[in-house]
Computed example of a mutant assay.
Amino acid sequence: MEISKSLLTGSTTMLILKLLEMKDMYGYQMIEELEKRSDQTFSLKAGTLYPLLHGLEQQEMIEAYEESADSGRVRKYYTLTKKGKGLLAEKKDEWKAYTAAVNRVLQGSVNIEPAY
C-alpha cells in the first residue's frame, strides 16, 4: 500500500535525525538507508532531502563536514549535534502522542459525547 505524501511530510525530519543519531551519513546514503529500513515505504528524492538538511544545518541541529572516500571522491557527511538530539527527542514524543491519539480514535476506545 502506498502511503500518502502528506503523512510522510510530517515525519521526514524525525526520520533523518534518527538516521544521523545512529551514525554520520552523506545524503545519498541517507536516502538508501531510509528506503532499506522502511522496506521501500520512504523514498526521498534529493530535491526533498537537501533543502531539509540545509535547514537543519542552519538551525544547528546537524553539522556538515567533508571526508574523502576510498575512491578519492570527497563527500559531505552530516552529524547530529546536541541540539539536534534534543529536537529528535521532542519529535519522538510528539509522534508517540500523535499515534496514540489516532489509535484511540481508530479503536473507538474513547467515549465522545455529542456537543449540543
Rank of each mutant, 00 (worst) to 15 (best):
L80F: 03
K96R: 10
I62V: 12
L56N: 03
M22W: 13
I112F: 13
L7N: 09
A101F: 09
D70C: 01
R37F: 07
F42A: 02
S43R: 12
E60T: 04
K18Y: 15
E63R: 14
P114D: 13
G84C: 03
G86Q: 14
M14D: 03
M22F: 14
T48H: 07
G84W: 02
S11P: 01
E67S: 12
M25H: 09
Q59C: 01
G55C: 08
Q59F: 06
L44H: 01
E90L: 10
Y65T: 03
T41H: 10
I3H: 02
K91L: 13
V105Q: 11
Y78M: 00
E90T: 13
L44S: 00
L34I: 10
R37W: 04
L106V: 08
S11H: 08
Q58I: 04
V105P: 02
G86A: 10
Q58V: 03
T12C: 04
K5W: 05
R104S: 15
Y116G: 11
F42M: 07
G84V: 04
K82F: 12
A89V: 10
Y28A: 10
A97W: 14
G86R: 13
V105D: 10
A46D: 15
L88W: 04
A69C: 09
A97I: 05
G10P: 04
K23N: 09
E32S: 09
N111P: 07
W95N: 08
K85Y: 09
T41P: 01
Q59I: 01
E21F: 06
A46N: 14
N111G: 06
T9F: 11
W95D: 08
L49R: 00
E113G: 03
K82A: 09
E21S: 07
K96I: 10
L52I: 15
V102G: 00
A69Y: 08
G84Q: 00
K82H: 13
L7G: 03
G108P: 03
Y65V: 02
K23G: 01
L53F: 04
S4K: 07
L80Y: 02
G72V: 04
K23I: 01
Q40V: 07
P51T: 09
Y78N: 03
R104E: 15
K76R: 15
K83R: 11
A101D: 09
I62K: 00
Y26A: 02
K18D: 08
T99L: 06
L15V: 09
I112N: 01
S68E: 11
E66Q: 13
E66N: 12
K83G: 03
L44Q: 00
Y26D: 02
G55P: 03
A97R: 14
E67I: 05
E113P: 00
S38V: 04
L7F: 15
L53P: 02
S109Q: 12
M61P: 00
G84Y: 02
V102L: 10
D39T: 07
Q40T: 11
E60M: 06
K45R: 14
T79F: 01
L15P: 00
S6D: 15
K96F: 12
A89T: 14
S4L: 11
T48Y: 10
H54K: 15
H54A: 09
D70M: 05
K91F: 04
